[in-house]
């Protein structure tokens, strides 16, 4: 188990290094730099930018260095927490990313919890009431949940929330708490603003996980050990929850690796629509402005989030399944 963990951790580090390279190349390679955008900005303000200035700026930012040199420069600082400077916003990347990445983590985790808490009972209900009317309804909802793009759901729910319930969307705090120090009331207020985006982000995964759960449970319910459990005289509820669900969770945890990317993608796009102060809006803005260090760092962090999520999924699997644990 310890060696398993060490192997996984090592592999994780290697993966992250490769991801940092790929992100760097992907974002750095295309022609045009943030400097051009910056110069454009200066010129549009009527400032006269001489070629000397351009040159000195280029030197300062290492614009004309070969790519491996730039990568090394960036990554060797990055391990100390210095991810470079945002050209566009004139701030260190680390200060821009700090609070936003925590919001992203929080939102994704909450959405994941929401998805699991809904998907498992609904999937179990659907599988144990196969071909009943609720089962059909749940199945239809699953298909729709996967088919509706997250941003659309965000728009529509935002529409409903503001139209019918008068909820403010796109903000995290009500007015009276906006600059207030942290308190229990402020936390509640935050949660009351966050549930909507969390539900939207989680919908896709919920639908998908419900489907996986239903199919797994149907599979497991046909297994011999479920009949064994019944033949002991256990009640159907104990048979389902103690013997079947436990085994059906296994593929569900394995599917975590597949849901996490979708979850993080969803978080990014929903935050853009709802204009939440998470990574999403800033990331897309950075891409459009060719603010490369900011964009690379975001992509790297989102990937790390995913890699860590996968590691946790592996650990959960080991905890769940003695066959993995005792290997």
């Amino acid at each position: 188990m310890i060696t398993f963990l060490i192997r996984r951790l090592l592999f994780m580090v290697v993966t992250v290094i490769f991801i940092s390279m790929i992100s760097f190349v992907l974002i750095e390679l295309p022609p045009g730099s943030a400097l051009d955008a910056k110069l454009q900005q200066f010129r549009s303000r009527g400032l006269n930018v001489t070629s000397d200035v351009v040159k000195s700026l280029e030197e300062r930012y290492g614009i004309n260095d070969p790519i491996y040199k730039k990568y090394w420069k960036w990554i060797s600082h990055a391990v100390y927490g210095d991810f470079g400077q945002s050209f566009y916003l004139d701030q260190p990347v680390s200060s821009l990313i700090g609070s936003r990445i925590w919001f992203s983590i929080g939102m994704s985790t909450a959405a994941l919890l929401f998805a699991w808490l809904v998907a498992i009972p609904v999937g179990v209900y659907s599988a144990t009431h196969r071909n009943s009317l609720p089962d059909y309804l749940i199945t239809v909802m699953q298909f729709l949940g996967v088919a509706i793009p997250e941003f659309l759901l965000a728009i529509v729910l935002m529409f409903i929330a503001s139209w019918y319930f008068g909820v403010e969307v796109g903000v995290l705090y009500s007015k009276q708490y906006r600059d207030a120090p942290w308190s229990f009331g402020k936390l509640l207020d935050l949660l009351s603003h966050l549930w909507l985006p969390v539900v939207v982000i989680g919908t896709h995964s919920t639908a998908w996980l419900t489907r996986v759960m239903r199919a797994n449970l149907l599979d497991v319910m046909g297994a011999q050990y479920v009949q064994t459990a019944r033949s002991k005289g256990l009640g159907e509820r104990a048979v389902v929850w103690k013997h079947a669900v436990r085994n059906a969770l296994h593929p569900l945890v394995m599917a975590l690796g597949a849901t996490l990317p979708a979850l993080i993608s969803g978080e990014v796009i929903v935050s853009i629509v709802l204009n939440l102060p998470t990574t999403g809006p800033l990331y897309v803005q950075a891409l459009i402005n060719k603010d490369m260090y900011l964009a690379i760092t975001f992509l790297l962090f989102l990937s790390i989030l995913l890699v860590v999520g996968n590691l946790l999924a592996d650990l959960a699997l080991a905890w769940l399944d003695p066959r993995v644990r005792l290997e």
Partner: peptide
């Protein structure tokens, strides 16, 4: 109350008859 108490059952496939968890 009859299952397990008055009538017990064993199956053909010992590999799958016990819950792996």
């Amino acid at each position: 109350a009859v299952r397990g108490r008055h009538i017990g059952m064993i199956f053909q496939e010992p590999m799958t008859a016990l819950n792996p968890c």
